[in-house]
Write a protein that binds this DNA or RNA. Structure first.
Lengths: 195, 195
DNA sequence: TAATAAAGCTAATAACTTTTAGCTTTGCTT
DNA sequence: AAGCAAAGCTAAAAGTTATTAGCTTTATTA
């Protein structure tokens, strides 16, 4: 990996852990294995590192949730729906890159308008849009009762987002959190699935 | 108001806006109308200001959501439930003190275990516990269908928490957000209320 | 009113941070 | 192998920040 990419990688790790203002360029350089002034051969300054970081986070997000290809084929039963949803959540929760981006965004969301907008998009729009499509498809195939798919996606995703953010700050409760999430999803199926 | 309290007040405002690391003791002092070294007549240091701030935020929270007295009498109809819930949300969303505490916590939640625990309590436990009781009471009086009150409280409160946090970072969408929240609550009633 | 404690101020320290200047090494191209 | 650009280094400037020391003002109390 190029030094430029290594800088972004280590900067993200540190920003996620200690925030932008809590991280020094010297710390970033040290983790990369160079001296602080060498950073300036790759970036104009600290702010520039963060902006490049946001760009790369956007790209990573786009490739994870952007296109509808990532839906795969629609679940064909209640158990299938619970299983695929849980595994998607487990992945989102554990994937180191996604986790760091989440922790970074939540801390820096008030820094400027761009970060505010991205935070909303990641937290509220992204996975919800995806589940809107899944639920809509499953309504058509008769598994879900007929209702507004956008609203149902919100009901499904919101508690999950809050629990995942709890797991980010208190990882010791991860197991209980996963149990709560599964309970919620099964309850969601009880309410909105046919039979 | 005492200088000590004014320091806490202005510190909270600044921490909510720019984060702990993004705020200088000089800025706090300036807002209070004194010079930075005078702060040290009231607090041991910057960290000490934050700890006192957390204590006072805890007290404020406890007085707002701690006891069950704040529930008042149970809603007696669907419209009553929607109205009282919406007004509680509007208050939580707009009250300057609560808003600042929320913004402060969300930014500093990873700083230490205490802040992590408090953030969870404020975000997940607080209002949910309150609605658990309300919903339980309304189940007994026959307005809600019989189900697990804790689970229903989560379904009700989670989307609201996410929308309020969106309003914190993008206040320009406040009206749309309130509309979405009301839509969600009415949908919640459609699903879980009798008739 | 005199004595004393609380709360303010100025000046300065000490540590830290970001960034620049200028030099050296590394590695690629011709 | 010579030339050259990219990427590293050291040294240091320039700025900021939290905190301390010591003095002065304000307010309280006896």
């Amino acid at each position: 990996m190029s030094t430029k990419d290594r800088i972004l990688e280590e900067a993200l790790t540190l920003f996620a852990e200690n925030g932008y203002d809590g991280t020094g360029v010297e710390q970033i350089a040290e983790k990369v294995g160079i001296k602080a002034p060498s950073l300036y051969k790759h970036f104009k300054g600290k702010e520039d590192i963060m902006n490049a970081l946001i760009d790369s986070a956007e790209a990573h997000y786009e490739s994870s949730f952007g296109s509808s290809e990532h839906i795969g084929k629609l679940p064909e039963s209640r158990d299938d729906f619970v299983r695929t949803t849980m595994s998607r959540i487990a992945f989102t929760m554990h994937d180191p890159m996604i986790r760091k981006i989440r922790k970074f965004l939540v801390q820096e969301q008030f820094r400027n308008d761009r970060l505010a907008e991205i935070t909303t998009r990641h937290q509220l729009v992204g996975i919800q849009k995806m589940y809107e499509k899944i639920i809509e498809g499953m309504m058509k195939s008769g598994l879900f009762i007929h209702d507004d798919p956008a609203l149902l996606a919100i009901e499904l995703v919101s508690p999950v987002v809050l629990w995942v953010s709890k797991a980010d700050r208190e990882p010791q409760y991860e197991q209980e959190i996963m149990d709560s999430i599964e309970k919620h999803i099964r309850h969601f199926c009880d309410v909105y699935m046919k039979e």
